[in-house]
């Protein structure tokens, strides 16, 4: 798709109007990205997520519903954690909201890449739902090679194929799970924290991000003992604020040099 120069130049020359077939072609280009390393990694972590959901007592329909309406994996895991720990609805919502704040800067930074001169806000609101770590990373890497007026079609393809396929992955794990030996559930459960641990460490933008990670890992057992039910919230706010203070001190020290 990247060597398709004729398409790219034709899109530059006109005002942004393409026929349906061209949009469809780029949408399908987007869907073909299901065969890529990040997409396959994401699918394997959805296998793990489905295992986690089964072990936490969620039904198949509830888990598929979560996948479609929430999509972001950390938010779903936080929601399941809150639900099974007996958190109230407002506390669960606050935990999920805090774990998802990062979606806003991700959308903000994706917008200039994604939108063409005539992209409507409704289209952007719809497409923003597909923003989560994997789709965002893929879009940020690939958008520059897509003709600007066709980027929304392309991203719709990427987003919808990722959500749709992973919803099917969840269904498949639920249907097959009856025949799984217990050790498979244990191994599946472990996939999610390991995927988060490694991908989050790598994607940390500043050193404060890694400090925040270590703070979160260390503080959680402390708050779990002191204030069960609010452990996630307290760890996030206090660990995150601590990492931010580190970031300020670190920056001031650099500026002083």
């Amino acid at each position: 798709m990247r060597d398709d120069r004729s398409l790219e130049s034709s899109s530059v020359s006109d005002s942004g109007a393409h026929d349906f077939a061209t949009h469809l072609r780029w949408f399908l280009h987007g869907t073909s990205r299901i065969f890529s390393v990040p997409a396959i990694l994401l699918m394997s972590s959805f296998v793990g997520f489905a295992g986690l959901a089964i072990e936490s007592g969620m039904t198949m329909v509830q888990t598929v519903f979560m996948t479609l309406v929430i999509w972001a994996l950390p938010a779903k895991v936080v929601l399941i954690g809150a639900a099974t720990s007996g958190a109230t609805l407002p506390a669960a919502a606050l935990s999920v909201a805090l774990s998802s704040v990062r979606l806003m800067p991700m959308v903000v930074s994706l917008l200039p890449e994604l939108k063409g001169p005539r992209t409507s806000r409704v289209t952007l609101l719809f497409l923003s739902h597909f923003v989560a770590v994997t789709a965002w990373v893929m879009a940020m890497e690939e958008m520059h090679a897509i003709p600007r007026n066709l980027r929304t079609s392309y991203f719709a393809g990427v987003g919808m194929v990722l959500v749709g396929t992973n919803a099917l992955v969840v269904v498949a794990v639920y249907l097959l799970s009856a025949s799984f030996p217990p050790i498979v559930f244990a191994a599946l459960f472990m996939l999610t924290p390991m995927y988060f641990l490694t991908s989050l460490w790598r994607s940390a933008r500043e050193r404060a991000g890694q400090v925040a990670m270590i703070a979160g890992l260390v503080l959680f057992p402390v708050f779990h003992r002191l204030a069960p039910g609010y452990d996630l919230l307290l760890t996030g706010v206090i660990g995150g604020a601590g990492a931010f203070i580190f970031h300020r001190i670190d920056r001031n020290r650099l500026e002083a040099k």
Binding site: L52, I54, E55, S56, P74, V77, V78, G81, T84, S95, L98, S99, S100, V101, R102, M104, P105, P182, I183, F185, A186, F189, M190, T192, P193, F196, L197, L200, A204, R205, E206, A208, G209, V211, A212, M213, I214, A215, G216, L217, L219, F220, P221, F223, H224, D231, L232, L233, T235, G236, V237, I238, G239, G240, A241, A243, F244, H247
Partner: peptide
């Protein structure tokens, strides 16, 4: 945004700790 990212990261790290230290089910 740095502060926001720090809190979000610490929260996901808390979830990682929860899953490993206090898992549900088979594990």
């Amino acid at each position: 945004l740095v502060l926001v990212r720090c809190i979000a990261t610490a929260l996901v790290a808390a979830v990682i700790a929860q899953l490993i230290l206090y898992p549900t089910g088979e594990l």
